[in-house]
Design a binder for these strands. Structure first.
Length: 268
DNA sequence: CTTTCAGCCTGACGGC
DNA sequence: TGCCGTCAGGCTGAAA
């Protein structure tokens, strides 16, 4: 499930293959993504040169010569694969050939992803603060919590309009590190806790990027998960187990339709 | 305006 | 072995 660290890692690993290259050929095999692929996508992309690769929230953005940029969202199950076609060639929806003979494949079994051309970043939607940027600090989180006092803190962290890139897994993990229950209403947050949450979000994302860097490019892993990351999970998916920090039981419930986990001992 | 929630989709997994 | 039901999750758009 690509969240910020996975998208960041993919961005870094794909960039050397794409940046500077001209797109020679585009084949769209299946337009039926979450956001249907523009019928003219292949015409509009063919012949363009990729000038840069960057990430905005969970979007990969490839700057192109001429007007506009190309965005890829991986949804739940999307992958970008460079080099050879994926071993299981099913669900490869977009295939791109570059001027150096290289290829890029967009594969997405669940088709929750997106692949489109756009002009301004705001066309990507109303996206919030980048959590790893300096402007995501205690003061920024405090402003958000004050504007949305009734929301649960986990819901706030996961809402892309407020903070981008933090998905379900990292929201759960960050709040465990911060010692704050996911169900806590923003109104009842203390300033000190906001500080801890900011630090925990940054920590968990940076740690995941560090772990994700090695195993993403070849995608041998059946799930495309960054190697080693799952072993570091402290609460996610561990409902009923004992917390490794304090031994208390890890609780589980649904918050906003998402699996939510916290330690009954070290999160208050 | 804000907040909630069903629905999109396939693969994995458990039960029988 | 295989069939069936359930669940997972990011995001959208409609409803409350």
């Amino acid at each position: 499930m690509p969240e910020l660290p996975e998208v960041e890692t993919i961005c870094r690993t794909v960039a050397p293959y794409l940046v500077g290259r001209r797109i020679e050929e585009v084949q769209v095999h299946d337009k039926r993504l979450r956001r249907p692929v523009d019928p003219e996508f292949h015409e509009k992309l063919t012949g363009r040169r990729v000038l840069a690769a960057r990430r905005r929230g969970k979007y990969l953005v490839f700057e192109l010569d001429g007007e506009g940029a190309w965005a890829v969202h991986l949804g739940m199950s999307g992958r970008l694969i460079v080099g050879r076609p994926p071993q299981a060639a099913r669900h490869v929806h977009v295939e791109i050939r570059l001027d150096d003979g290289g290829s890029l494949y967009f594969q997405d079994p669940r088709r929750f992803g997106a692949c489109f051309l756009f002009h301004e970043d705001q066309d990507l939607g109303n996206l919030g603060i980048e959590p790893l940027a300096d402007d995501f600090d205690e003061a920024a989180l405090w402003v958000l919590r004050t504007a949305h006092k009734r929301l649960m803190i986990k819901t706030l962290l996961m809402d892309q309009r407020f903070v981008v890139g933090v998905g379900n897994i990292y929201a759960n993990e960050a709040l465990h590190i911060a010692g704050v229950r996911p169900t806590r209403r923003c109104a009842r947050l203390r300033r000190r806790e906001a500080t801890r949450i900011v630090a925990a979000v940054k920590l968990v994302l940076q740690r995941a990027i560090a772990l994700g860097g090695s195993s993403l490019l070849d995608y041998r892993d059946a799930n495309g998960q960054p190697g080693g990351f799952q072993r570091t999970l402290r609460v996610y998916g561990r409902g009923g187990e004992a917390c490794e920090v304090c031994g208390s039981e890890i609780r589980a419930r649904t918050v906003g339709g998402r699996g939510t986990f916290w330690c009954s001992g070290c999160q208050s």
